[in-house]
């Protein structure tokens, strides 16, 4: 189910950046937070804020089972020369076509060759890998650390 939600998040972020919105909000889950953090680290988004459906939090609010459904992550979208920095973000592994790569395949992909249906990385592009211990790392990191895992999504 989480990949379905991530697919929605990807589409939402893409739509928001195409209509030049300053902020976009996505449901608060661990995977979404990891993806948002990855995008932030690689400079695709400007900020990450915790909040609710009403807006970013003004006072720190605890996440409880009673308010989890209304909790949101507010992401600040980035633009350069009136063009969005985040042009495209989409799932790679899908609910009906999961793509798990071992460390050799990850190294091959990061080396510039196609692996199964995954096209090699383009300049300025990033691919996120979810490792077996549920960490989210980018492709180059995974290759360096000899890690395998599920190819979650790619952004450029």
């Amino acid at each position: 189910m989480s990949l379905v939600h991530l697919a929605n998040v990807c589409a939402h972020l893409q739509n928001c950046s195409r209509v030049n919105l300053p902020l976009a909000h996505i449901p608060l889950t661990r995977l979404h937070l990891q993806v948002a953090l990855g995008l932030y680290k690689h400079g695709f988004i400007k900020s990450i804020q915790k909040g609710s459906t009403l807006g970013p939090d003004l006072v720190p609010t605890e996440v409880t089972p009673d308010n989890i459904s209304s909790r949101r992550l507010w992401l600040g979208l980035k633009y350069k020369n009136s063009k969005p920095v985040l042009n495209k973000i989409s799932l790679v592994s899908k609910p009906n076509r999961r793509l798990f790569l071992d460390k050799e395949e990850i190294r091959a992909l990061s080396g510039g060759s196609s692996v199964r249906v995954i096209k090699p990385l383009q300049p300025g592009e990033i691919i996120f890998i979810r490792t077996l211990n549920k960490d989210l790392v980018d492709l180059q990191d995974a290759a360096e650390r000899h890690l395998g895992g599920e190819v979650v999504c790619r952004a450029r």
């Binding site: 608060l28 889950t29 661990r30 937070l33 953090l37 990450i48 605890e62 996440v63 089972p65 989890i68």
Partner: peptide, 11 residues
Amino acid sequence: VEQYLKGPIMR
């Protein structure tokens, strides 16, 4: 954020 990811997201 890193610290937040280490612990549980929800109490």
